[in-house]
Design a protein around this nucleic acid. Structure first.
Lengths: 171, 171
DNA sequence: CTTGGAAAGTCAACAAGGCTGACATAAAAT
DNA sequence: ATTTTATGTCAGCCTTGTTGACTTTCCAAG
């Protein structure tokens, strides 16, 4: 607060007003409020199942990369194996996820959604996509491109790798 | 998955390829990974203090609107008053927040940051702004405008109100 | 004026889902 | 043969969400 921008133009005709502390604070709050909206719909669905966001994340990334290993999921989600394991255990017990011992490397467990799991995934992602679609449509293609550019810049380089991996085609 | 876009053009020259399910999934994952980056720096600072994100949020919005009431904070943060109260109590005990009984309405508590509280707020928001600034600078003004447009569309209308309230000028 | 309800805040107890640490097992790698 | 890797499990802690019960304060209707 208090600190106002230099109140003038910048060096080379390029206005940098979008980088003032106040503009940045607006960006921060935009992230905060938008993320709430982003998770609101899935949260409601998850509640009916007695699951939480942790389950959603697991289901999402197993769906994205069927046959992924526990270790891979760990590095994507950035939680401890104990934490992930608790979630995975309930999903397997409830018959939403199947855990198959690896063929080449029998230490690994490869994870797949069952039909029931895929059904939940569809419900969740359809709700989330629906909101995203409305937002994208209202904002238009150029805004969407900017949205993605900024978000990509905001990621940790380590995580950006996982983001890029998620491109069409999968494995 | 499997469902490819109609693989052609749209009606009126406007390509809607940015609304395919796959593009939407990309947007969803962008939000997920970017939010992690967004909170990473403050999280590290908070850890030194033994605080969590809930403390960060409280400190942020008290700084944005000094003298705000607990109730107002509740509607912004969207948690129960019991949950907020616990966080607020530790902040008051630790001398980062001052809680003054309302003069007109003695049921209300008005919240202010102490000098110590303002100091923590500066550390947190400088870290967060720094990352946001780098991302904004790398992405450019147009991308930033798009970023904000999309995020704003993604908010619940109720929350969008609070976002708009946060505009320069405050009260 | 009194009384009843609503509003703001506090206390207690519980659950989800993070975390660390210690340990077990099997398989792969050296 | 030994070490490393991948996974799983148990125990226990912390933050931060929840609900329920309670107090204090305010206000409005009788």
């Amino acid at each position: 607060m208090a600190e106002r921008p230099p109140a003038g133009m910048m060096g080379r005709g390029e206005s940098l007003l979008f980088l003032t502390d106040d503009q940045l604070r607006r960006g921060i709050e935009a992230m905060f409020f938008a993320y709430r909206g982003f998770t609101a719909d899935p949260d409601r669905i998850l509640e009916e199942y007695g699951y939480g966001r942790a389950h959603h994340r697991a289901v999402h990334f197993i769906n994205r990369s069927p046959g992924t290993t526990v270790n891979n999921l760990l590095s994507i989600l950035g939680v401890t194996k104990q934490s992930l394991n608790r979630v995975l255990r309930t999903l397997v017990e409830d018959g939403l996820v199947e855990s198959r011992v690896g063929t080449r490397d029998k230490r690994e467990r490869h994870l797949y959604l069952t039909e029931t799991g895929a059904e939940l995934e569809r419900k969740l992602s359809e709700a989330q996509r629906s909101r995203m679609r409305d937002a994208f449509r209202a904002a238009g293609p150029e805004a969407v491109a900017g949205f993605r550019t900024v978000l990509e810049q905001m990621m940790d380089p380590e995580l950006k790798r996982h983001y890029r991996d998620g491109v069409e085609g999968g494995r």
